[in-house]
């Protein structure tokens, strides 16, 4: 049984990360921007697992585990911040959240 080369996974990871950056830049909705960050984290996770397979080291999987935990914590706090923003400013558009702008 032939195995898919690890470089294929790395290319897919790069494409997904690039699409995450595109979504991060294009999207104006604060929740969708959060989702773009999650997409980038997922792409990095794929690269970690691919490298773990390439060198047959389990450490990469441990890193994925930690990334997932931190992403979950980040999502919880981030969405709470989104709730607060919507409560205070009645908008989800990031351009309307400009209190710190000159």
């Amino acid at each position: 049984m032939s195995v898919v080369p690890v470089s294929y996974y790395l290319v897919l990871s790069a494409i997904l990360f690039g699409l995450g950056v595109v979504a991060f830049v294009f999207k104006r909705n604060i929740i969708t921007i959060f989702m773009a960050i999650e997409l980038m984290l997922n792409a990095v996770n794929l690269a970690f697992v691919a490298f773990a397979r390439a060198w047959n080291q389990l450490d990469g999987l441990v890193f994925v585990f930690f990334v997932i935990v931190v992403a979950a914590a980040e999502a919880a706090v981030g969405l709470a911040i989104v709730m607060t923003i919507v409560h205070n400013r009645q908008t989800l558009n990031v351009e309307r959240v400009d209190l710190l702008k000159l």
């Binding site: 997904l16 979504a23 909705n29 989702m35 989800l92």
Partner: peptide
């Protein structure tokens, strides 16, 4: 996966992106 990521960008409603 790539199709899903592209749909995330193209979708106009956040629920579709999710």
């Amino acid at each position: 996966a790539v199709l899903g990521a592209v749909l995330l960008i193209l979708a106009r409603e956040p629920i579709h992106s999710a």
